[in-house]
Design a protein around this nucleic acid. Sequence first.
DNA 1: CTCTAGCTACTTGTATGGAAGTAGGCAAGC
DNA 2: GCTTGCCTACTTCCATACAAGTAGCTAGAG
Lengths: 237, 237
Amino acid sequence: MALILEDLDLWKLDSLVAVNRQLRLLLRSRIIRNDLKPDDKISEPGLARQYGVSRQPVREAFITLAHEGLVEILPQRGTVVCRIDYEAVLDCRFIREAFEADVMGKLTSKPNDQLVANLRKQIRAQKRIGRRKPGHFMELDEKFHRTLADAAGLKRAWDFIDSTKAQMDRVRFLSSEEFPITRLIDQHTQIVDCIEQQDSAGAEEAVRNHLREILQSLPKIHALYPDHFDHFRDTEF
Amino acid sequence: MALILEDLDLWKLDSLVAVNRQLRLLLRSRIIRNDLKPDDKISEPGLARQYGVSRQPVREAFITLAHEGLVEILPQRGTVVCRIDYEAVLDCRFIREAFEADVMGKLTSKPNDQLVANLRKQIRAQKRIGRRKPGHFMELDEKFHRTLADAAGLKRAWDFIDSTKAQMDRVRFLSSEEFPITRLIDQHTQIVDCIEQQDSAGAEEAVRNHLREILQSLPKIHALYPDHFDHFRDTEF
DNA sequence: CTCTAGCTACTTGTATGGAAGTAGGCAAGC
DNA sequence: GCTTGCCTACTTCCATACAAGTAGCTAGAG
């Protein structure tokens, strides 16, 4: 997620920072937050007028977003916001599960009291804030998992995972109201317990179960927003 | 790897395809194949003149390459070819190991004679061609692993993995002469054997061992080409 | 009414000019 | 000798103009 801007309406361009970069972050946030919806047509001159800049930076933002699979550029025809790639979401989740399972193996190989304390503190914050603002839980969850990767000395690895998560983040935003927050927090607790006890197998199973939650909500979201997805593949496990 | 162009010198621009895209692939190949070396300065007008196009497409290619971590754009200062990110290589390898280990779990859950036959055929080709042209073994190896992911129904997942492999591919190109090809092929055989026998644990261990080979060669490559790398982190496992 | 040809209004792709900023050389002043 | 200030040559960044291709509408022919 890294950078999902908030208060999109209030956002104004800062002349000190490259417009190119600002537009890239802004448009990505608008797509993930479902402000720009699938199949919406967006054009370089259109957005250029809207933000009072030239076509050039807008175009460069489009190219980057196309590379991330968020928009599709059809030469001489236009640019549209991509539908959520159902298969990509599943595959991305698969990679995450495999990765984080192995992360558990590294974290349980030696004790790390400081990490455990940090994680428990985060969980308390999740319980406190998660109830009131479900939208903010997503950020806290993100931070929790990033902390795990960092502690394993895999900071760069998480950046890679992060860059492929755009599609999954769109789903998570759509389903932010549906989050079984209480259960997710319990799973976080379970993970930390296993880490503390250096229970490798337990931690791995816990994190796998945790990351399979989205498999429960994904079909529901698909049913609620069928037009937001492209294909539907019913075989996974 | 997807698209690493060959015969870079013979490459001429095709007016039918977007110059933007052609330059992106061309420059990426030149970097991975060590034609453009780390710390080389490249500039928009320079390459524009070299290829007889305007600065615009060159610039767009730069932006994409920067996003892949192959070049670094320093505003108003210039653009340089990045050194190989040692930590990124290690982390990328870690993700690959985790991913492919889980792929083994899926592949051994049910028999797949067709897949096994396909893989054995590929291994025969590896033995045949690998000896003569070590450079080509890289492509065959790539194909082998892609086949595994495809068979597990994780085509998109491999695309993600692939997009993060640029740094690792640079290492592999530098070390293509050093490849212990015979051992790698033996490991391929071992993997296929385990898949055929639906030996989940065995397949997982085999593929993990296989993907840890680069940990052996990486320090050697670093010693041979110290200027090609940036940082050196000596703690991994 | 149906179909087709052409025109118009869009789109993205490329080229080019200028704005802003940086690095380095070089000379004047201390 | 050392520092300071300017000046030049470079870079990336943004704006604008033009080229080329596409979709859709409209008018005319059958």
